[in-house]
């Protein structure tokens, strides 16, 4: 009997203790890259052997906002754009807890853009994983602040003429201490980058470029998720330490990935402790 149980246990998925496998299959579309980001995060936790009771995952609204429901740690599914304020509160109330924000580009950079900027300015000890799929996917494919310039979406039927925002540049300018960008295909590098970001005290940002097979690539006729992945394979260039103003993503042009910023700044808790000491 025991032998059978151990044989069955050996065939469990290695991420069974980190993910809520009873909720699988998840709601993400075939060819979506958010599952890859979750996979990399779970693998990073596995590599760090982190105490899961001292970890909290916060996510906002959107496709990536569903991550909080699939990770088997304490997690918050918050209101739209307000993932970072919730995370700030958790961090200030429980300074020994590691807080991770996993959310999308529409949630973090557009609706929560102000919170993103000010959390980076204060250098609160958070790890932000921003899954960038260039569009508001869950609500039906509206134009997002990261949509590249001539791309079509449901709310830009003549092409998007707005200038897209550059997440690494925004994070560096606001004061983040660790900024990296990878695509959903660079899985091992992404995993090690998340490990570094989790180890780093301060506001660390990892941007994950993810294919959106149902909206972004369907409206722009770019094929399915696998075609987007092949495009990332052909067009991503690894340049560590590239100045972040070179990192704008043009429509169907090269994507520069790598680790761009790794610096030291006093965190909010350190500054507060020093202030009250004096």
């Amino acid at each position: 009997m025991e032998a059978i149980i151990t044989q069955q246990e050996a065939k469990r998925h290695p991420m069974d203790n980190l993910l809520r496998m009873d909720r699988m299959p998840h709601i993400w579309c075939p060819g979506c890259g958010i599952g890859n980001a979750v996979s990399a995060f779970a693998d990073a936790l596995d590599k760090l052997e982190y105490n899961l009771d001292k970890l909290c995952v916060v996510s906002g609204i959107g496709c990536t906002g569903r991550v909080a429901g699939y990770i088997k740690v304490d997690s918050f599914h918050t209101t739209h754009g307000r993932a970072i304020p919730f995370a700030t509160g958790i961090k200030l109330g429980n300074p020994d807890i590691k807080v991770v924000v996993i959310s999308g580009d529409g949630d973090l950079v557009s609706i929560g853009g102000n919170h993103f900027v000010h959390a980076a300015r204060r250098n609160i000890d958070l790890t932000v994983i921003c899954v960038n799929n260039f569009i508001y996917a869950m609500t039906g494919g509206q134009v997002a602040p990261t949509t590249p310039t001539p791309a079509y979406t449901t709310t830009s039927p003549f092409g998007n003429f707005e200038n897209p925002s550059n997440v690494p540049q925004l994070a560096e300018a606001a004061g983040a201490v660790y900024v990296a960008r990878w695509t959903a295909l660079h899985m091992r590098r992404l995993t090690y980058s998340i490990v570094d970001a989790l180890k780093k005290p301060g506001f660390s940002v990892v941007e994950v470029i993810s294919p959106c097979a149902m909206y972004y690539s369907r409206i722009n006729k770019l094929g399915d998720g696998l075609d987007m992945m092949k495009f990332y394979y052909d067009h991503s260039i690894i340049k560590h330490g590239e100045p972040t103003d070179h990192l704008e993503i043009d429509y169907q042009k090269e994507i520069i990935v790598g680790k761009f910023v790794d610096r030291e700044r006093p965190t909010y808790s350190e500054s507060m402790g020093k202030w009250f000491e004096d």
């Binding site: 050996a10 065939k11 998925h13 290695p14 699988m24 979506c32 599952g35 996979s39 693998d43 899985m187």
Partner: peptide
């Protein structure tokens, strides 16, 4: 790598 790149947690190797 198949385990890492699978977005649906449907394949793994031991």
């Amino acid at each position: 790598f198949c385990q890492l790149v699978c977005p649906d947690f449907a394949i793994f190797s031991i």
